[in-house]
């Protein structure tokens, strides 16, 4: 297994290099540059020129890239063009926030999804089943900015139950927890719906299989039958969904981060690209890509841990 993990980590290197080249090409192709943004619309030619020289943007593109990458190899992600901050520091602050959001929403989606999925399966075709499936449909089908805004209007403004923004980066505190509740629900809604469906259909599929029927015939209580035997088999699809969504969350949480004013890595990336802040874009994209690959690895390891029939290859 150690060998397997090592091999996968080696594979990470070409992916990251590929991503960095893609980012670089992208920056090269996109019109506009950081100096023009910093100088603003009323700037004179001299002002723009001075800033261009200061940022090193007057040098040929490939030199900029090589210079940047040699820094990265030494562990230096460079400094933001716009604010002059160390990119690594800027990313660290946001990374914690986005990670908290991703973990919390994954937890919510698992708890909600598995519970409702189990109940819906146990009471197939009951009103509860229909309700769960109906809500989950809604969750999968609505744009997240839209759900987020509705939550803000209902729970924040009308009912004044939950705070609208202001996550402090500390999810383990009561304050942090409360502030992350709405964004995490918004984000977790879609995946909880999917998990709920997967749990339900996996359970239904399994319930009809022989060994469950046998277990039942032996007189084991139904609840335990479902939980012990069936749930274990439903775990794999659930892990897949959580894994995929979790990986997507890190890069795609920008909408929820904007709506709930969470200082996350998605927003950082979008801001950086609007500002043509090359080192910041590179740094944040590499970080997101890295996390994505690592999560995939973890998912694969979990598969094998849960189901011995799956082997590393």
């Amino acid at each position: 297994m150690v060998k397997y993990i090592f091999k996968r980590l080696i594979q990470l290197i070409p992916v990251l290099i590929g991503v960095s080249i893609a980012v670089f090409l992208m920056i090269y192709l996109i019109p506009g540059n950081a100096a023009e943004i910093i100088a603003g619309p009323t700037a004179t030619k001299e002002e723009i020129q001075n800033i261009t020289v200061k940022l090193g943007l007057d040098k040929p593109a490939y030199i900029q890239y090589l210079k940047y990458m040699s820094g990265v190899l030494k562990g230096d992600l460079g400094y933001s063009f716009q604010t002059g901050q160390a990119v690594s520091k800027a990313i660290a602050v946001r990374y914690v926030n986005t990670l908290s959001l991703a973990i919390f929403s994954a937890l919510i989606s698992i708890i909600l999804g598995v519970t409702t999925g189990i109940i819906a399966a146990a009471k197939r075709n009951s009103w509860f089943d229909r309700l769960c499936m109906g809500i989950s449909t809604f969750g999968i089908s609505a744009p997240s900015f839209w759900i987020g805004l509705l939550l803000i209007v209902v729970f924040g403004v009308k009912l004044k139950l939950l705070p609208i923004s202001g996550f402090n980066g500390k999810i383990w505190t009561a304050d942090g927890f409360i502030h992350l509740l709405m964004p995490a629900i918004t984000l977790g809604f879609g995946s909880s719906a999917m998990i709920s469906r997967m749990t339900r259909s996996s359970l239904l599929e399994i319930i009809h299989q022989d060994y469950i029927q046998t277990a039942r015939a032996k007189g084991v209580k139904e609840k335990i039958v479902i939980l012990k035997h069936a749930l274990k088999n439903a775990l794999i699809p659930i892990i897949t969904i959580v894994g995929i969504n979790f990986g997507g969350l890190l890069g795609g949480a920008v909408v929820v981060e904007s709506v709930f004013a969470i200082n996350g890595i998605g927003r950082l990336m979008v801001q950086a690209i609007s500002a043509r802040d090359f080192p910041m874009i590179q740094g944040s994209v590499l970080m997101v890509a890295f996390t994505f690959v690592i999560i995939n690895l973890i998912v694969d390891i979990l598969y094998a841990a849960i189901d011995p029939r799956i082997q590393y290859n």
């Binding site: 910093i38 100088a39 001299e46 002002e47 001075n50 800033i51 020289v53």
Partner: peptide, 9 residues
Amino acid sequence: PKTASPRAS
């Protein structure tokens, strides 16, 4: 000019 102030003008 080395400062590259955006409002040097």
